[in-house]
Amino acid sequence: MERKIIEVKNAIKIYKSGDEEFRALNYVSLTVYEGEFVAIMGASGSGKSTFMNMLGCLDKPNSGSYFLDGVDVLHKDQNELAKIRSKKMGFVFQGFNLISRTSAIDNVCLPMIYSGIDEPLRIKKAKEALRIVGLSGRENHMPNQISGGQQQRVAIARAIVNDPPLILADEPTGNLDTKTSIEVMNFFVSLNEKMGKTIVLVTHEPDIAEFCKRVVTFKDGNIISDTIKKKR
């Protein structure tokens, strides 16, 4: 049987603002197997960000179940979730979200500090991750000294350095120009194909979704289409 990395069933998320209630997720179910490269599409307010936060264990649904790599994460406390985040997944954000005034290598080292890896090994692995994303020799550059594309590659290095099975990318190309976007996307493709990472990527650009093997579209808190374009 294939390894289920993500298994969400009947997730409901309700936001309240004053008297009004807003259902951001409406009985959403999705299963992602190991080695998939999934694009999540949808207009803003469609529930895709809420879904993403839930996948990243940053938010919990009001009802439903979520198993991450076989673990029931909805019944874990904050600290256990932090451990799961550092071991099971890597985040790549739209705004890069590197820690400012902190060198590239220190940014990449951060997840390993929290997962308790010793300093010598930490530096070795961080250098290796930066080499994979093609940034050897820029270890000591500050985020404001390198281009957007390079910053995003540092962020990717940070996401893969703990060798997690799942990578979550929230509009990773949203702040990049077309040429850099294509570079970054090609990089995700090679992560998926060569390193076997399972990737879930949120985007609203169809061009970007083209790089993925499966496209899931959200609308008004529901999944309205789920197309597998390419076999894993």
Binding site: G56, L58, Q78, N79, A82, K83, R85, S86, K87, G90, F91, N97, L98, I99, S100, L110, P111, Y114, S115, R158, N162
Partner: peptide, 16 residues
């Protein structure tokens, strides 16, 4: 605040 958010997302516990 943002830095704290990043740290939490990549695995920092409240204790950390």
């Amino acid at each position: 605040t943002k830095e704290i958010g990043i740290r939490m997302a990549i695995g920092a516990t409240t204790f950390d």
